[in-house]
Amino acid sequence: MTMNVMPIEQPPIQVKHLDMAYGGTIVQKDINFSVQKSEILVIMGDSGCGKSTLMRHMVGLKKPVAGDIFYNNEPFWSGGITQRENRMRHFGVMYQSGALWSSMTLAENISLPLQEYTTLTAKQIKEVAAFKLSLVGLAGYEDFYPAEISGGMCKRAGIARAIALDPEIIFFDEPSAGLDPISSKRLDDLILALRDGLGATIIVVTHELASIFTIADNAIFLDSERKTLIANAPPKELLKHSTDAKIQRFLTRGAEGVIQP
């Protein structure tokens, strides 16, 4: 890939003893897991358990209360800000709400990181932006403003922006929520292609069971009641071997257990 301006490194990600809190309210405690290079990790858990919060910690938006995240064995939070920012340049982040820059068109949204971090010419940037938009099925929407497109389209444009720089590590927060089944399937294909084609490591927050079983190499499960990570294994194995009622219910849409008060 010619656009890949960053040197390719081994990015095993390790999260060690991470505690997360808002103010004094603990969201999750003692989270431990690691992600291999070119692996697709799915973060699962019930709504409000802290998946987005975990992502915010991993991408450098929120400082953990305790513990740290290690990228290539370098501590992410206890290191300096410069070191952290250098690391963050290798990330692509897609937000749950899309978070497109509303004063810019879709093409400009995708171009901004390219302008900032590559030496491409304006014409090349335009082409790349158009290509990334077409990857998420938004070809022809270059000159639309985020306010002029639907919620699902905003989400897809957010995905296009996240992959603008062909990052090494991509974070997706519920990319398929609010998408129709076909777009959702296309998105799974895209995630797999990004991993297979570019060797990206991908961390996805998702509830979509079909997509969990198709794309995930590994999964972690956060629980809002126990406030910690309760499983870390490939989803298919979890389905077969996990004895935890909550995980079973989650992976079978509640078919296994009875809803209990």
Binding site: R56, V59, G60, L61, E85, M88, R89, F91, V93, Y95, Q96, S97, A99, L100, W101, S102, L112, P113, E116, R161
Partner: peptide, 17 residues
Amino acid sequence: GSMQVNEEIDALKTTVI
């Protein structure tokens, strides 16, 4: 403020802008 609400500022931060 509304950019903050829409996570647009977060998106800038993670793009290291």
